[in-house]
């Protein structure tokens, strides 16, 4: 299939159009419109329960999250009904807020399988055990991870911070075109956030990745400097803007921001 090939080094666009999503029969997202671009950091902010993870899962194609209306378009290709693997093959990546545990599977073996699967898709030779070992070592050093991590079981018994570092390690190895980071900063300490942010900057130099940054924290924002900010509330985008908007929210807190936002909306309607 020609059009499922990854298309590097050009301006890629991921567009969400009037997206409605339900989980277990319960409507969560009510008509989201968003446009993401390569080489851009796009922050999604919003209080707990506003639907940020739901949006992330719907973009990745989690079958539990049902799209009842609207579309997800990747470079003119409608991927609303594509399988999760098809989306992964296109270069969409989700760093999970709560990654699944897979006991007994070492980080090393899993990542070699994943990386070599991707290489096969791009008609590249698989990495040998030794070459992969070197590559993994290099990426782990970037994230200040101990080498013993290689043989740990995928997410099983990991601390919050370890899970997030493991997600970032996967990102560095799989080099996606769009990376959704769902609260990657929570669970990480200050050093962790710095290491992850540095690694992302490096990865961006390699390929002009688009980053969809879901976060509450100023700290991570400051490290990654979003180009755009969208605010989600009750399954809807209520405001969009630049870094300034993020600052405003940080200063006031969500509750106050949303109250003012509602009032100004009412004012505007009158």
């Amino acid at each position: 299939m020609e059009n499922t090939k990854q298309t590097d080094n050009k301006n890629n666009i991921l567009e969400i159009k009037d997206l409605h999503v339900e989980v277990d029969g319960k409507p969560i997202l009510h008509g989201i419109n968003l446009k993401f671009e390569s080489n851009t950091v796009h922050a999604i902010m919003g209080p707990n329960g506003s639907g940020k993870s739901t949006l992330a899962n719907a973009i990745m194609g989690n079958p539990k999250y049902k799209v009842t209306k609207g579309q997800i378009i990747y470079n003119d290709q409608d991927i609303t009904n594509s399988s999760v693997k098809e989306r992964a093959d296109l270069g969409i990546f989700l760093s999970f807020q709560y990654p699944a545990e897979v006991p007994g599977v070492t980080i090393n073996n899993f990542l070699r399988e994943a990386v070599n699967t991707k290489r096969a898709l791009q008609n590249q030779k698989p990495y040998s055990v030794i070459d992969f070992y070197k590559l993994l070592k290099e990426k782990m050093q970037l994230l200040h991870m101990d080498q013993s991590f290689r043989t740990r079981e995928l997410n099983a018994g990991f601390s919050g911070g370890e899970k997030k570092r493991s997600e970032m390690l996967q990102l560095l190895l799989l080099k996606p075109i769009f990376a959704i980071l769902d609260e990657t900063d929570s669970g990480l300490d200050v050093d962790g956030i710095k290491a992850v942010a540095d690694a992302i900057h490096l990865a961006k130099k390699d390929s002009p990745m688009g980053i969809i940054l879901i976060t509450h924290y100023e700290h991570f924002m400051r490290e990654l400097m979003p180009d755009r900010v969208s605010v989600l509330c009750n399954g809807k985008v209520i405001q969009e803007g630049s870094t300034e908007l993020a600052k405003k929210i940080q200063e006031k807190g969500f509750a106050e921001f949303i109250k003012q936002n509602e009032q100004s909306n009412k004012g505007g309607n009158q």
Partner: peptide, 19 residues
């Protein structure tokens, strides 16, 4: 989770079983 990293369903099942 595993399929989101590009594994097919069959590969993902094999990985879980081998673990």
């Amino acid at each position: 989770y595993l399929q989101s990293r590009g594994l097919s369903e069959e590969q993902a099942t094999k990985v879980i079983v081998s673990g």
